[in-house]
């Protein structure tokens, strides 16, 4: 098996048409906490991937699941970060709208976790995702995404606008966008 990516918390191995996402132990945290985090995230990620697809969001098909490992379909795409455009980021906004419609919070919405293959966009890495109907959680999703844009893209403002054009398909978008602005301003001297 060939290592295709070694992200902050997991190693992604390519095995023919499949990829294996294996959550690795972290030496810096104690074993109890480490195993708890890895087990929870593996299980919840698998569930979210399935639910997201049911909501009409392209995600990899899951083939197998164990304690710290998910085996899923290999997607031969490129991260949005590398092929960024206003059109693509608008489409990404539409997908996030679909997730939020079903109360799925991605939890780590960065431009590395959005893959582009042909004219299809896939959302990957639901490792920090969860279900929540709360405006706050959805706003945090947007906040994380905007922060990624602001910290890595020179044209962040234009890209944010395009993203929102797509995101407006979610009927609750207004409240979420308002809350995101609030999070941004929130005074932390409490």
């Amino acid at each position: 098996m060939e290592v295709i990516s070694h992200c902050a918390e997991a190693i992604i191995l390519r095995d023919g048409d499949n990829v294996v996402k294996r959550r690795l132990p972290k030496r810096y945290r104690i074993r109890e906490l480490d195993e708890m985090i890895r087990r929870q995230r593996t299980k919840s990620e698998a569930k979210l991937i399935v639910e997201a697809r049911k909501a009409g969001v392209p995600t990899p098909v899951i083939k197998d699941l164990s304690d710290f490992e998910i085996v899923m379909e290999y997607i031969d795409g490129r991260p949005l970060k590398e092929v960024m455009s206003e059109e693509l980021v608008r489409k990404a906004g539409e997908l996030v709208a679909k997730l939020h419609e079903r109360n799925i919070i991605h939890g780590d919405l960065t431009t590395t976790n959005i893959l582009v293959r042909g004219d299809r966009i896939y959302l990957i890495d639901f490792g920090l995702g969860y279900f929540d109907e709360d405006v706050e959680s959805k706003a945090v999703d947007l906040h994380v995404f905007f922060q990624t844009l602001e910290s890595t893209e020179i044209k962040a403002e234009e890209l944010k606008k395009s993203f929102l054009e797509g995101y407006k398909r979610y009927k609750g978008w207004k409240a979420v966008v308002e809350r995101e602005k609030e999070i941004r301003k929130r005074v932390r001297y409490a």
């Binding site: 945090v140 994380v144 922060q147 990624t148 602001e150 910290s151 890595t152 020179i154 999070i183 929130r186 932390r188 001297y189 409490a190």
Partner: peptide, 27 residues
């Protein structure tokens, strides 16, 4: 006490990659 952030320099500014959503860690 009051601030908890992860920052990095990019294109003329220290960008905030992540931060506390409520109170600072020291607090």
């Amino acid at each position: 006490g009051a601030n908890s952030q992860v920052l990095g320099y990019m294109a003329g500014r220290y960008r905030i990659f992540g931060e506390t959503l409520d109170i600072g860690l020291g607090n």
